[in-house]
Design a protein around this nucleic acid. Structure first.
Lengths: 220, 220
DNA sequence: CTAACATTCAAACAATTGTTTCCAACTGCC
DNA sequence: GGCAGTTGGAAACAATTGTTTGAATGTTAG
């Protein structure tokens, strides 16, 4: 009881503070102080601060990976050889992301880490995610491919990342955006509200007409 | 010559390092070391690290703000009392964004900084940008409002930020995405290519059908 | 030239960081 | 009870942080 309690309390507090301030801005003393555990407990149970961040990350992504695989299994079982519509695929993804049994703060942390994984110049974090959880993403993309046969592969690649950018940016900067939105339109938005608003936008983005062919002006 | 040289060298180095690692992860010794200036020079010329961060932003946003105001002026002069179409507005924004940092450093750096301004919990940065350059964006949003009268204000707010997320994420993670794209589809994409691909996607996103009304299940 | 100012520089500042140490308190097991 | 190994806790660790200091240097104007 004691061990689990300390470890869980550290993880719970860490993910909240990470989401609020970021990783570098959150000190271990900050976490252990709020979690009411000893400072050394972090290094004892996790080894280092970096490992703690990864643990927070895994606590979200592991259940997500499992659930999403299961959701796709069920989807494929239900649709048989028929093509799963894009809306269903996106909806399944969104539902799984929102479902994952964790605090609502962890979603923000997860999105921040995901954003870091891409923007960080050295792909150290990106490779970790790719190695650890790449199969889920690959499987999803293969289904999206069947659902959007009119898109060239490279076009679909870019559009999926356009959409990923929307999701990551909105959710990882949620606090800032929420502040503005509440002040200007005094409406409190939940993550679920955002998902509802994103749905038609994302679908429209994926189904947008193809761009005009590249200018062949100065190209051989 | 000496002063300008030192100040410029600090700004040049700082903006690159900030974009690479983030604000908190970049120390003044890191900047001054790489810029080959004395450590105290930062506090002497800028006052504090916080002020340096804002100075880095101003160097980008000042020319952008000027150019964008001018571009909107010309647009309004051309269209008179007629409504400026959404495509034209977005195209003007894109052109200005592409024009400005071309003089200095890469667009990627500016986008990373902008992304950090939102996601990083640095509240002072967001407020600084809002206070300093709020009028430009307010003016732009007002025109977008006229171009999209069917959208509720809050909906337009969110969609603009969805789009902002796409742009920031794609351009700030350009190196990583370009690596994948080149490996998987062996095609070299330029920033101009990306803009061409983004155009129909962004327009479709803004013109997407309205979301279904929020679930009134547990709400008063 | 010299006085006044602006800038650079090395050094030290106090504060905070992640990590480690060592010992007490506890657990489960014989 | 007594011994193993695990966990908790206060303190100290070394390193790094942003900032300040005061003297040295460079620059400019009278």
């Amino acid at each position: 009881m004691a061990q689990t309690d300390t470890v869980t309390r550290i993880l719970d507090t860490a993910e909240v503070l990470f989401a609020e301030r970021g990783f570098a801005e959150t000190s271990l003393r900050n976490i252990t102080g709020k979690a009411k555990v000893n400072l050394a407990a972090v290094n004892y149970h996790f080894g280092s601060k970096k490992a703690l961040i990864q643990a927070v990350f895994s606590r979200y992504l592991d259940p997500f990976s499992d659930r999403f695989h299961a959701a796709i299994d069920e989807l494929e079982r239900g649709y048989g050889s028929k093509v799963i519509p894009l809306e269903v695929l996106l909806e399944t993804m969104a539902r799984t992301v929102l479902e994952v049994p964790a605090e609502r703060h962890s979603l923000k942390v997860f999105m921040r880490l995901l954003g870091l994984a891409y923007s960080q110049a050295q792909g150290h974090l990106r490779r970790y995610i790719q190695d650890q959880y790449g199969t889920v993403f690959t499987r999803f993309v293969a289904l999206v491919r069947k659902a959007t046969p009119e898109l060239p592969d490279s076009e679909r690649f870019w559009r999926l990342h356009f959409v990923l950018g929307t999701v990551i940016f909105t959710l990882s900067g949620l606090d800032a955006l929420r502040d503005i939105a509440e002040k200007d339109y005094d409406e409190h938005v939940s993550v679920r509200d955002l998902a509802r608003r994103m749905r038609p936008v994302v679908v429209a983005a994926m189904k947008a007409p193809l761009p005009e062919p590249p200018q062949a002006s100065s190209q051989a």
